[in-house]
Write a protein that binds this DNA or RNA. Structure first.
Lengths: 340, 340
DNA sequence: CTGAAAGCGCTAACAT
DNA sequence: ATGTTAGCGCTTTCAG
């Protein structure tokens, strides 16, 4: 069943049918439009947009690349992207790379081959396949970065937060409430967000005149397991620690569990600060104090920007920074500290 | 840049180029293949699979419909699907319906228009648009159900668990450990999994000779908020309750938080049983006893089945049931109960 | 308002 | 082994 069949059945040309399935406001009398629509409904014809796409060189499809949807940070972001896409009639390809540059390249190639209209990418690492990279750049396909910057696409716009200031704000709170020996479970070593948050951590220490100790910052993954293992292993060696700053709420989840098992009261003996404010954070025990970023909005806004890039709207090539805010719950102490 | 350009540059016909970009084992000498590959690499040509797809009527794309990726149950499932898809060279369209039949229909139509090779669907509700429904059925496009059954696609295969037996197993554990007044926060009323789990709940009560109380089963959503609100509101009215069976771990998350705030010791005064075993269950406080279903595997297996449907492999039209297992952690009491 | 026809980029026989 | 050609289903001028 194709456009020709419909044309024949109604007794018009395929051009006319094409106009109605594309909601062309003009060029079709209401009467023929109605007849065509009726036949389409009767036979249950569904136009082949693939075929249309090759003619108009637009697919109404965008691709999204993230490390892992199982990382609790991403579902909200993905949902933001998807909502915006769907509201504008776009479909969304979802891809998980596990931060593997190889997988990322496989997906990127698939996106290009399937001619997506734009790409949203939360990436890390540098592409090996420079030919692919060059093809992507030359193609001029719109790319918008999500949350992380990367050298391969340094010239591309993105939606970010100021990780440095956000971390500074969080750690300052820790310090304000009397903490001075602050462990920092930082996240992956060579990721943009990690290094920025580290800068914020350092800045807060510096301003409070607390000496920076390199052995207080530990790199790892954005997983609860990492938070758990690190605390279990390290804390006995650092009994003086009075706070831990988890580089992501997912990490804090594990930290809290370890502390609970070790029967260390939070926040009385050790304060715990998270980062992200994933949906789960308020349900932890104790509810997690965390630096909140607008996860859903970042996704939604990035998708909006991508669409405006696709439409070549002016200003769509500029990055944007979203605001963050400290959410005080019960894993850190209240009010002003006593030692500062 | 298209296949013709490459053909001209190398001095061969587009047919030959087509053979090499499709890895045709035969029909092209190693020497020309090398020359073509070299040129492709040099100019960074990326074939347009869309165009190919309309010729071969295959898109190497599948569509997945779920209620909401933000529901902690789904990320793992989606990841299972996506891994299988990617391993087989398929791309994945992700769609969230919020259980809205209207959205589901929009997505389904988009899938059909974009000619996906198959559809994976976790659905509820009956489609309004019967024309669309009929078109889908007539098209013969492979559909595999995920976790939930639905009347619209009653004849389609799917990957499920035995929700009734699983719930029976869980509730029996509660009873074995001495609970008799078991509140059941069931989940959405007219969803297949809810009604099945209710049957299991009833069966366990029946066998233990515990009278069934209709007011002990409360319907709601699969959210922590629902679990939280329900407990806060209801428990004061039912002081005799000694256990709550949450129809999903996401619900249990809220239950635990409410109980904590009400300073009701778990499991000493009230046991809490979850269902699903989402990744965070073990990080809750106390770690949640739950009926585990193999979430990732359900997704992966469903995708495998869909692909074998696409390939018309024999037996691919049969549903499969995955096993469940009770995971005892610390939100329920140990061993045999004292009152049974 | 409507029809005819030339593509869009690629595949798949069928020739050579 | 390679070239030729007729589609795949739709869009879009350009006439009428």
């Amino acid at each position: 069943m194709n456009i020709n069949d419909i044309a024949h059945m109604v007794g018009v040309s395929k051009g006319t049918v094409s106009r109605v399935i594309n909601n062309s406001k003009t060029g079709v009398s209401e009467e023929t439009r109605a007849r065509i629509l009726k036949t389409i409904e009767e036979v249950g014809y569904i136009p082949n947009r693939m075929a249309g796409s090759i003619a108009i060189a637009k697919t109404k499809t965008i691709g999204l690349i993230i490390p892992d949807i199982q990382n609790l940070f991403f579902p909200q972001m993905v949902r933001g992207v998807e909502n915006c896409a769907m509201e504008n009639g776009y479909s969304l390809f979802l891809c998980n790379t596990d931060s593997s540059i190889r997988k990322q390249e496989i997906y990127l190639r698939a996106f290009m081959e399937k001619r997506v209209d734009g790409i949203l990418i939360n990436t890390c690492g540098v592409m090996q396949d420079r030919t692919l990279w060059k093809s992507i750049c030359q193609s001029g396909i719109p790319i918008v970065l999500l949350d992380r910057k990367t050298s391969d696409f340094a010239d591309k716009p993105g939606i970010f937060i100021d990780n440095r200031e956000a971390a500074y704000m969080g750690v300052s709170h820790l310090i304000d409430t009397g903490c001075r020996k602050i462990l920092f479970l930082c996240g992956p070593k060579d990721v943009f967000t990690s290094s920025e948050r580290l800068k914020g951590y350092c800045k807060a220490l510096h301003i409070a005149d607390i000496p920076y100790r390199e052995d207080y910052v530990i790199y790892g993954t954005h997983t609860a397991q990492y938070g758990y293992d690190t605390i279990k292993e390290l804390l006995p060696r650092y009994p003086e620690v009075d706070a831990v700053f988890a580089g992501a709420d997912t990490i804090a989840v594990g930290v809290l569990k370890a502390l609970r098992e070790m029967e260390i009261p939070v926040p009385d003996q050790i304060s715990v600060l998270g980062f992200d404010n994933i949906m789960f954070s308020e349900f932890l025990s104790p509810p997690l104090t965390t630096v909140a970023q607008p996860i859903y909005d970042i996704g939604y806004r990035a998708a909006e920007k991508l669409l405006s890039c696709i439409r070549h709207e002016p200003g769509s090539d500029k990055s944007e920074y979203m605001g963050t805010v400290l959410i005080q719950r019960e894993s850190t102490r209240k009010g002003r500290g006593d030692e500062t």
